[in-house]
């Protein structure tokens, strides 16, 4: 991997991490309600603190990627954690409530009726397996490839809904009732796609590093 290319990767990683932190601030309402949904009861009154802790963490990560020598390990680790973690959090409510998820899929008005239930049954489990694959680095090349494919598919689905002006619940994190605008989900997915592509290069990079040793 050439030096110039590595520098570009580093720049994109740091910038996207920084952008992600800003995006979290801009969508603080949704993030806080998500925190309240997922964290234990006794932490609920501290959702404000949890939120800002998460934001600061991403600013620190962006800073580390910019200035640390082994930046690619920091970048790869944090992207794996965010993507894997998000996929697990997204998959579980959908697995537990396939009916609600099927309903969310029909809102997109995109798939034929016969395909809706099959998608609702299989996609959350595929998400879960992808998450395990990239977090624990088991069959990770395939995992990252699938991650890219599934995120681009989500991007197309959300993009067409946004263009058509559909006022629907994204359904990304199951049928929780907390409505999340399609436009915001689209931007979030864009960050994820960038990271999924970067992860592809990182796995290659690590292989090279190992060979050198």
């Amino acid at each position: 991997m050439s030096k110039k290319f590595e520098k570009t990767l580093k720049g994109v990683s740091a910038l996207s991490m920084f952008g992600w932190a800003l995006f979290l601030i801009l969508t603080s309402g949704e993030i806080k309600s998500a925190i309240e949904y997922y964290i234990p009861k006794y932490l609920k009154q501290h959702s404000e603190i949890c939120f800002w802790a998460i934001v600061v963490l991403f600013f620190i990560l962006a800073f580390l990627i910019s200035y640390v020598k082994k930046w690619n390990i920091v970048a790869s680790f944090s992207m794996r954690a965010v993507l894997g973690g998000t996929f697990i959090l997204a998959a579980i409510p959908k697995i537990l409530d396939p009916k609600g998820f099927a309903l969310d899929i029909t809102h997109y008005d995109f798939f034929p009726k016969f395909a809706v239930n099959i998608i609702a049954i299989t996609v959350p489990w595929i998400e879960l397996f992808i998450a395990f694959s990239i977090i624990f680095a088991v069959a990770q090349k395939g995992g990252i490839l699938l991650l890219n494919l599934i995120l681009v598919a989500f991007l197309v689905l959300l993009g067409q809904a946004w263009i058509r002006g559909l006022d629907i619940d994204c359904g990304c994190f199951g049928h929780t009732g907390a409505r999340e605008a399609v436009s915001k989900a689209f931007v979030r997915d864009l960050f994820f796609v960038i990271w999924a592509i970067l992860l592809y290069f990182f796995t290659k990079n690590f292989k090279l590093a190992k060979q050198k040793n």
């Binding site: 537990l96 049954i121 990770q140 395939g142 995992g143």
Partner: peptide, 30 residues
């Protein structure tokens, strides 16, 4: 592609089996 296919098939299989056993399961085709 091989690994991706394995994850895809395993994920789908788990989904189908879980759906068949789960009380909140839905029909495969409406």
């Amino acid at each position: 592609f091989g690994q991706a296919l394995i994850i895809l098939v395993l994920g789908s299989l788990f989904g189908l089996v879980y759906n068949a056993l789960s009380p909140s399961g839905i029909p495969l085709f409406a």
